[in-house]
Nucleic acid binder design. Structure first.
Lengths: 219, 219
DNA sequence: TCAGGAAACAATCGAACGTTCTTTTTTTAC
DNA sequence: GTAAAAAAAGAACGTTCGATTGTTTCCTGA
């Protein structure tokens, strides 16, 4: 046999991409063989090379497209949202929902960076910095406005992103808690964690409240 | 050649274990070849089989020993510590410091579970549950005592552990911030995140403080 | 001192790896 | 209708893989 009945390049390309994501998620990039991948989409392994240059570029394409998607959609989710608290909320909301529905892509983008060769890795690391920057800026703005207590914005950024991303390790769409409920829980954790105890300008709070009672106003 | 001058079983076994951790951390379990590992410790690949049954059991031994270490030391760190707040602090402190110094082991134990065969995986998953249970119980106790606001202890447990564990993705011992400083930052984030806004029994706080000032007392 | 156990080498197995190339079949365009 | 283009098969390549086995050398204790 050669070209098969009903075969279609665009459809095959899409199937390869999806099967690739699935297999890399399940077994890891190095552990996924191209013969496995070919079998998954009903091809011979050699035929895959009509669709990518080599195995490495398949991985890079998957990761790059994911990161672009992530950055674009996060920026869109925060666009027009005013105020650090609301922007932080928007980020948390987007990040959680995205990670609940795209756990495979997320896992690959986070774990298989080490499998990328140096130039590809540099590109991805830079994109990740962009994505983290969106959160970090909201935290810095909130701290500058006296709304957040964030002594180390970089650390807080890493901490929050780690916390939120962890959800894709256990979330199941048929689980007990809805997406909305989970977003609420995590949002509370994050906001309580970073909010300035006084909720108003520090000096003001120190002056006004008794020592034992100086605490937070919820955002 | 055969047996080499100065060769010693115990020393070689230790060297294999350490090189194994290093290589799995760097390249992943599947991507690490036994020839690589053998070269790292100065052996032929066949000689490795004096020290483990097969590649799979090398991975399992590494992960099991790590999990045992983690559980034992966490329990020891919390032993005799009274009160949910202090127990939570002790857990956070231990977890962070451990993960700052053992990032390779931690990474392997978290990421290579999928590379374990079913029975081995079940064992490790159970150990992980034990470890998570230590934190979850502290959160439940704190909630029951009215100290914490934790509507979903399981979710909070996962969230906190994810947040803390993330530190091993970027912490460097020669970085700007000391271990103590980082522990302080993370402890604040966690405690603020889960503490009940009032910090004392709810009814009491409502009665005593003015509306705008009703908030937390730090633990 | 020397026998037995410990430690490692060296050769080898079949299978699987990523990749390349040629051939064959189907689809499309004129 | 037919030629060009697209899609996939299928064979083959040199490597490397985890694992097995038989042999050689070193160490140690009675």
């Amino acid at each position: 046999m050669a070209r098969t009945v009903g075969s279609n390049g665009a459809r095959t390309a899409k199937a390869i991409r999806e099967a690739g994501v699935h297999l890399i998620y399940k077994h890891g990039y190095e552990a996924m063989s191209l013969r496995q991948l070919a079998a998954e989409v009903g091809l011979q392994s050699g035929s895959l090379y009509k669709y990518f240059e080599n195995k490495q570029s398949l991985l890079f394409d998957i990761v790059r497209d994911h990161m672009e998607d992530l950055i674009t959609k996060a920026a869109a989710a925060m666009e027009g949202v005013e105020g650090p608290v609301e922007r932080l909320k928007a980020y948390v909301d987007f990040h959680l929902r995205y990670h609940m529905t795209r756990s495979a892509h997320v896992f690959i983008a986070n774990m298989e960076i080490r499998s990328l060769d140096a130039p590809h890795r540099a590109t991805v690391v830079d994109m990740r910095r962009q994505y983290e920057g969106l959160l970090e800026q909201a935290l810095r703005d909130g701290a500058a406005a006296g709304l957040f207590r964030v002594p180390e914005p970089k650390v807080a950024t890493y901490a929050i992103i780690s916390m939120l991303t962890g959800i894709c390790m256990w979330y199941r769409s048929d689980g007990r808690l809805s997406q909305d409920a989970l977003v609420q829980i995590y949002t509370d954790l994050v906001l309580e964690g970073v909010s300035r105890p006084e909720g108003v300008a520090l000096a003001e709070a120190v002056a006004v409240l008794p020592a034992g009672g100086r605490r937070r106003a919820r955002a």
